[in-house]
Design a binder for these strands. Sequence first.
RNA 1: GGUGGGUUCGUAUAACGGUUAGUACUCAGGAUUUUCAUUCCUGCAAUAGGAGUUCGAUUCUCCUACCCACUACCA
Length: 516
Amino acid sequence: MGGVRTALYNYLYAKQHGGDFILRIEDTDSHRFVPGAEQYIIDSLRWCGIVPDEGVDAEGKVVETPSERHPHAPYRQSQRRGIYRKYAEQLVESGFAYYAFDSAEELAAKRAEAEAAGQTFIYGQQSRGSLRNSLTLSGEETARLLESTTDWTVRFKMPEGRIVEMDDIIRGHIEVNTDTLDDKVLWKRADELPTYHLANIVDDHLMEITEVIRGEEWLPSLPLHYLLYEAFGWERPRFAHLSLLLKPVGNGKLSKRDGDKLGFPVFPLKWTNPETGETSRGYREDGYFPEAFVNMLAMLGWNPGTEQELFSLPELVQAFSMDKVQKAGAKFNPEKAKWFNKEYLRMKGDEELTELFVPVLQEHGIEVTGCFKCPVSHDFDAASVSKNYVKAVVSLIKERATFVADFWDIAWYLFKAPSSYEPKDTAKFWKEENYSLAFKVADFVQGFDGPWEKEALEHALEEFIRGNEWPMGKVMNCIRLALTGSGSGLGIADITVLIGKDEFCRRMAAAKQSIV
RNA sequence: GGUGGGUUCGUAUAACGGUUAGUACUCAGGAUUUUCAUUCCUGCAAUAGGAGUUCGAUUCUCCUACCCACUACCA
């Protein structure tokens, strides 16, 4: 979710300013490669309607070679290996970086040692003079190690006593003293890959990135990035650091564990970790509309300055503004997410919802036949209904649902007769003085020869019951119990008109049977 | 520990330095309805604390508290 929101804000900003949205895969950690993760990102963004201008083709594949539409290809950093080394070396030559030969094990030992002494080991201005690197070793030794060993790195030589003055679009002016910063690894000989810091700066420069909109966790690295641009003599982009998405209860950032625990998805699409087999539910699979998901995400940390809450993606492009982005972290609220989906479900057309409902009906053994131009029909014995019958049902129930999946629970009795009666409701309504009247009403319906429409039937029913001075609510609830098996549901006239006179009579008769 | 960031109802947020601090979600009542749901109405509920600047501070400054991030040859 957090990643999608960051991508969304980038997309909105780019589109609003007539820019291009580029998808670049930052896979410079060969140890953390997860098969399928890249495709997952592409699929997720596409589901959300966030389509990159550059970086993937129409089929969602990563572009390998430069073309007119994709001038900066390749967009996968693991395929750009050759580019980074010379930039790393350039920094060493110009004195902004140095070679470090300390092994990962040596450094780990130093960290453990410092920790035991209650201190923190920092590879930086205090310690670099006593470690094994091109600053302390002779030129010959350095050259020999560069040739003969393969686990050295290039580290940035953090300047001493400098105040780096930075500007963040969202947070404003920020100052950091370089004395508190360490000498970050920029390039690793072992896998001939850069770290994020180098790769990001080099690629942003090469790909002509004008705005960097990323998560707040990058704010502590911003001084390094500023210094890197300075060292290369490149014009830097503008930066905006987004606050994090927080878990709904308690403190801390949203993690996939929270979703499992509290019952909501934290992934846009269902995700199965190929290594562990562990799966995480997705918004798509949970029945959310992508528009609702995107709208909800957009409002988490941004507001339009008006009271409008519902925005389509193009409307978001129009309305988005960086100075309305919140500085503080936003706690995610699953209830509000559902509310958004409910609103979008209402806005959907009946035919679209019908198409989505058909598979659900089929799962419950209901066959759907015909088309939207075909006549309305149903055959409850054969568990078969026409598409237009489904559409009629959908138009009646859509305002009662949050998800398409709710439709069945709300309206199953419009597709098959109840096989049992809710005991609680039976105890409440099914009393002789009431159901005896209900059966008389049933007889009246059987003889009803007015137009078979909701309004006509409703009026006739009301006139008949009130005319006899019978208790409206009690009688109607008995009929509802017979028709739906429970004490809740649609209006009697609505149900009756839909299921038809024959089915109505059969259900009333069945209810009569059950009491004998 | 160090560095940086943050702090308005439970949640998301609004408020040129001047408002009875607004809206939405949730929740609680009520109205409508043949039930349920919808819809509508009403209500509950906040400027973290303390100084300072000012005629006046949610808004500006400082301090404190709390929360978060970073502190990897991860991003």
